[in-house]
Amino acid sequence: MTSETPSTFDGRLLIGATGSAAVALLPAYINALRATFTGTITVVMTHTAGVFLPPHTVSLFADRVVTGARDAWQQENPGTLAADHDLMAILPSSAHTLSAVATGAAPNMLTATVAAAEVPVVFFPVMTGAMWAKPAVRRNVDQLRLDGHHVIDPQVGQRYDVALGGFVESPVPPAPPAVVEVVREFMPRRGPVAD
């Protein structure tokens, strides 16, 4: 194997998709993961995430999509979701989700699953520069880290602002290869399967 060909890795990945417009990029992230990640990918979506990106579209890329619909609660509940996965990646993570998890709130299926998780949880915050700089958001990020979660600081780059009709410098979602490397880093290594 050459250094140009990354090795494959596996596990059971749970991606939490929140109500950031950047959720529209989720299929690109899943496709990038598929290049080297051979495990399963489940996506749990908040209601607002489903407004930006329909769950049936996400189901074309993920092995399973969970929306927290009340009629599916017995099969898809926070405890089961948390127990059935090796790693959670909140991608993208809105300021609202950071706040809810930092304070122990569980207003939806995603945040309740984070509360029930005993596996690593990695947050990829995506929001405007003004929001990212707010003391309350910074306190929430600090609290998440103190609680043992991993928060990947967004990079600053150019993004299109619909309201302004042009590009602005702002925190931007990480490139798909960067997300793959973070997932690889935090995915617990599983031992060989016994016969």
Score class of each variant (00 low, 15 high):
Arg139Ile: 02
Ala175Ser: 04
Leu110Pro: 00
Leu53Asp: 02
Gly129Val: 01
Glu76Phe: 15
Asp153Val: 00
Asp63Cys: 06
Val179Gln: 08
Thr57Lys: 07
Ile90Arg: 05
Ala106Cys: 15
Phe124Leu: 04
Pro135Met: 07
Gln158Lys: 15
Val122Trp: 01
Val151Arg: 00
Pro176Val: 02
Phe61Asn: 04
Met127Asn: 14
Ala116His: 00
Ser93Ile: 09
Ala115Pro: 02
Thr111Val: 07
Arg159Pro: 02
Val151Ser: 03
Ile152Phe: 05
Ala163Phe: 09
Ser93Gly: 11
Val122Tyr: 00
Phe124Cys: 01
Pro55Cys: 06
Pro171Tyr: 11
Pro171Gly: 07
Val114Thr: 10
Arg64Tyr: 15
Pro173Asp: 01
Gln158Leu: 15
Met127Ala: 13
Ala136Trp: 10
Ser94Thr: 15
Ile152Cys: 12
Ala175Ile: 00
Ala69Asp: 08
Val141Lys: 03
Pro174Phe: 06
Arg145His: 11
Val172Ala: 10
Val122Leu: 03
Val168Lys: 14
Ala130Lys: 06
Ile152Trp: 05
Phe123Ser: 05
Phe123Cys: 07
Val162Pro: 07
Pro92Phe: 02
Val65Ala: 07
Thr80Trp: 13
Ser93Leu: 08
Leu60Trp: 12
Ala69Gln: 05
Pro92Asn: 05
Pro78Thr: 04
Val162Lys: 13
